[in-house]
Amino acid sequence: MNIFRLAGDMTHLASVLVLLLKIHTIKSCAGISLKTQELYALVFATRYLDLFTDYISLYNTLMKLIFLVSSFSIVWYIRHHKIVRRSYDKDQDTFRHYFLVLPCFLLALVINEKFTVKEIMWTFSLYLEAVAILPQLVLLQRTRNIDNLTGQYVFLLGAYRSLYILNWIYRYFTEPHYVHWITWISGLVQTLLYADFFYYYFQSWKNNVKLELPA
């Protein structure tokens, strides 16, 4: 494992922890899109089917379990926790799941490395992860005023994606036969979706003002 991959995994982990911390301590999920969180839970559930079939390393298994448990906990908190759920702004978070899930699934049926259930689910999870942040970005645009933790959450997710790209470049030059078009293209699309957010995030950071997105 290279340093980019490790740093990428750690920022990914940090993003989830920031979110859980916010929900757990402030007992609020204001500004968080339940739609995005549900999509991430679906992403992990479909991608980590190999937990049952392949063993890669203890690190790999543990991280997969952490992402599965944390994503489903976040969804549970927002939907069912008696205090947290009251802060969920249902009327603003209107993105439709199937609008993203269906095209990703159809694309996975057509473009995949192998036509098996496991492969198609894995490919589907990559396509879905690429666009799963969209409901969150739409919600941020709508509410415009973003609290620090939500801003940091999205920033850490974007950092994780950028580090994964550096990891792929590194692996391409250091490992033989390391070519994964599906992973790369969907990963690139995913990272580009953050570009706009990043721009405003850095602007607010540079000028030392509260992050606010233009309408």
């Binding site: 991959r5 995994d9 990914h12 190999d50 392949d54 890669i56 390393s57 790999n60 991280m63 997969k64 992402f67 894995w122 994964y164 990891n167 490992e175 033989p176 036969h177 390391y178 992973t183």
Partner: peptide, 10 residues
Amino acid sequence: YQAPPVKDEL
């Protein structure tokens, strides 16, 4: 022939 790398990423 070399098998493709395992999917060891998260």
